[in-house]
Design a protein around this nucleic acid. Structure first.
Lengths: 135, 135
DNA sequence: CTAGTTGCAAAGAGTTTGCATGGCG
DNA sequence: CGCCATGCAAACTCTTTGCAACTAG
């Protein structure tokens, strides 16, 4: 099983080339200009998620899932910050977060998976914009 | 605007009565045994979210949104932990998290909204179960 | 009486699935 | 050549919307 088809290679290449972004199935499909059918994109993404090559994120709008190449080692305690105002996604790498993880594990008996967790809130730029407008 | 109809009151009562759970629109609709149409449930949930009475969560399956009565004051820094194994949802109230919030704001210029953020991972029980089985 | 609310059913968006065709190994 | 992968379209799920009937104030 798992043949190397032209399409599956195109999909993986595309995701690797955009490893810094969260892509929707639609974006991948359109990025490959109809070289690959949408159903195939979904089937490949599912497979890549299963093998751990790609990670799937569900964003708050709940409309579409996002996928990202999982190039970083699992030990990199790396969280995501999603701005609810502008929609931008930030990557957060910080030892403080490792501590958080350990704290929750030690004191609350829960092991957090940073690769699945997204913090929602407001980024600096949007906070400034808001202050300028209203308050 | 905003009439107090029989249906809207039933929905709010039901959500309040289940303030400790995350409910899907479907669960609410079925909990009210067809006393309220599903479209009405969605419309009321949208309104209640808008007024801040209810909070909406998107869970990792990405299938359906969950709603919960927002009885806690906004100042209660209270996060949610969702176990990816058993699906249970835990509430986490801890000063350490307040600190986390402040840390991210101060050092990363990002204001986290705990009411929108869900930590994904594995709960103590499921970790035990996993250890018992495999490792 | 008037405007917001409901219910139904149809429309939408995103994702999955069935089935015949195509292509990797 | 066998079997998995693909493409298309239909099916599915959750949610939203249009419209006529209804009802709170």
């Amino acid at each position: 099983m798992n043949y190397n088809t032209k399409q599956s290679m195109l999909i993986l290449e595309y995701i690797k080339a955009n490893a810094d972004r969260h892509l929707t199935a639609d974006e991948i499909s359109e990025g490959l200009k109809n070289l690959v059918g949408k159903a195939t994109v979904y089937r490949n993404l599912e497979r890549l998620c299963g093998s751990g090559t790609v990670r799937k994120y569900i964003l708050t709008d709940g409309k579409s899932a996002c996928y990202q190449y999982a190039d970083c080692e699992p030990h990199t305690r790396h969280f995501h910050l999603k701005c609810l105002e502008c929609g931008r996604l930030y990557h957060l790498e910080c030892e403080h977060l490792t501590e958080l993880d350990e704290h929750i594990r030690a004191n609350h008996g829960f092991s957090v998976d940073p690769s699945r967790t997204v913090f929602y809130g407001t980024c600096a730029e949007c906070m400034k914009a808001k202050e300028g407008k209203a308050q």
